Amino acid sequence: MSQNYFKDILETDGLSIGYKQRRGEDLCLLSDLNLTVRRGELVCLLGPNGSGKSTLMRTIAGLQAPLKGRTLVEGVPIRERNFGEIARLLSIVLTERLQVGNLSVYHIVSLGRHPYTSWMGRLSDKDESMIKWALEQVGLWKYANKFINQLSDGERQRVMIAKALAQDTPLIMLDEPTAHLDLPNRVEIMRLLRNLAKETDKAILLSTHELDLALQAADIIWLMSKNNDLKIGAPEDLVLSGSIEDTFKNKSFSFDRKTGNFIMNYQKKQKIQLVGNDVMGFWTQRALSREGYQVTREKTDYCSIHLIEDRMEWEIHSNGEVTNCKSIQDLLLGLNTYL
């Protein structure tokens, strides 16, 4: 194994983040952080607004001075290097939408090779090869000659990821990479980043508000709270320990450890017995909960709902009467007659 091979691509050594004050004590958000991101690992940084995610990302990237400690990429202290050297260690994909409609996809991705080109910016055969490889990794080689304004938001984000790949750094950092994207593209970008971490052996660190996707895609989650606290672990460990639930605690909703979803809290109505399971039962229970009913598997004094799964129908049983419903919408309307 080469002496230049580092399993821990990113390390922070006693890092304290925050803001230096002209007068009085510095405002410290988190202190004495000893963090790592390993080769081939996707790490997601989660936390409520105001918890310090952006400050941590900027400090790690060397864009903001730490209050104490340092960041190392492959053993190299970031703050002790010039911009050219840093550009060979880490690449950054920001949240802002790209507004350069007169540039081609190939041209934008080629900018990732700037740290390796001469002062004239002439691309070598290796540069050309890296650009093609990066575009192939994100599935956009066939769009190389298209202008950026001809692409969808999801495709534009993949162009920026390709630019980071072409930069060929051991660490890639992304700030809210799924912002401005619709659901299919959010899922695709997170899936792409996970695959890239595994296939390219790079370390990928991203900040996100996409809790549900982070729970599915991340190897490790850094979970920040507003209480100057940072918890680290596999997504499942943070769910089972109650850390996710505690961090995002709110009177308006609750976190369901069984499904990994947030559930809105509604004013409770009567208890309803639900007879039946499987997919139909799950979505029926969700609709009833949304309407404020307390769903139980035990017999109640109010009424019971029986799922007729082979016909995809619902029966409301109350006071010896049975009402048939062809859809959940009909079911909810039918329940109003028993109020």
Rank of each mutant, 00 (worst) to 15 (best):
G40K: 10
E41Y: 13
G281P: 12
Y5M: 07
R58C: 01
T55G: 03
P177K: 02
F262D: 07
W222Y: 06
I189V: 15
R156A: 02
K249H: 13
L29Q: 04
L111R: 01
E80V: 01
I308Q: 12
H107D: 12
K251S: 09
S304Q: 11
S16M: 03
K249A: 07
D175T: 13
S327W: 14
K146H: 13
F6L: 01
L335W: 08
E41C: 07
L33I: 10
R97T: 13
V73A: 05
S31F: 09
V100N: 01
L211M: 12
Q273M: 08
L288K: 07
F253A: 01
Q216F: 11
D182Q: 13
Q216I: 13
N195Y: 10
Q21M: 14
N4K: 11
S252L: 14
Q157K: 07
N250C: 11
Y293A: 00
R186S: 12
D26A: 13
N4S: 14
M264T: 15
R297W: 12
K326F: 11
T323M: 06
L111M: 11
N277E: 15
Y293G: 01
N324Y: 12
Y293F: 15
S243D: 14
I9C: 04
N49S: 15
F255V: 04
G75F: 10
D301L: 02
N4W: 10
G18L: 09
L123I: 02
S304A: 12
G50N: 10
T208Q: 06
